[in-house]
Design a protein around this nucleic acid. Sequence first.
DNA 1: ATGCCGGGCGAAGCCCGA
Length: 269
Amino acid sequence: MTTIATWNVNSVKARLPNVLDWLKQEAPDIVLLQEIKCIAENFPALEFEDMGYNVAVSGQKSYNGVAVLSKTPIEIAEDRLPGDESDEQARYLEVTTDTDAGHIRVATIYLPNGNPTGTDKFTYKLAWMERLIDHAQGLLALEEPVVLGGDYNVIPQAEDCYDPAGWEGDALFRPESRGAFRRLVNLGFTEAFRNFHTQAGAYTFWDYQGGAWQKGLGIRIDHLLLSSQAADLLVDCQIDERPRGKTKASDHTPIWCRLAPPPDLSAAA
DNA sequence: ATGCCGGGCGAAGCCCGA
């Protein structure tokens, strides 16, 4: 089994004890981190390497920044989202690795928030999504297991937020954002969580403000998208809410999916 | 309630997030 988790940690330095605790407890094989908020040189690689992880980082000072931790050795395929050489923001990192579920390609994604709408931030978000769609189309053409995981900053459907009316007009819930997310999925990806769960009110983010966590007022914006070759191996997907309840918590909580070895590999084992 | 928390930066108060 190969477990792939994604977690927007909102500063890897501020969150290090919480992250290490969760890794010790859950021992995921691959972890996709977002909002590490540091350059690669300042990433606490040693702490993760001591736990048996290989580390790849696409960093940036103060903002954004993504990383991949993997028990198996990794090769970097992309350390920025292709399609705009002038884009300096560290929001995408794609690697390949050989797991017990076979050779897979995984990307950690920190999709732009896009608020306030009516500014270049929203334009940037939508353009970034088009670049992601273009790139993802090329990845599907490889016809291999691909997992695109991360903070998409998109609430796919009304049942994925506590107050749809209140989110109307927000960049996370605008028809343009949801439409682009749907077009991405419709290229041929399986959204891992919805493959297993239909209920409303399953969330991955709760605002720090207003006691949102205590009141259960969250949104589901962290997603795992799988190519058909990966989806064929998919056996489980869960949101782990527990880290959100800890002290010094990130405002996001981890979500993970589990891939079983394909039949030919199982037979060989 | 487009800022009620929380982090970075850098040493006070502003920028940013969703």
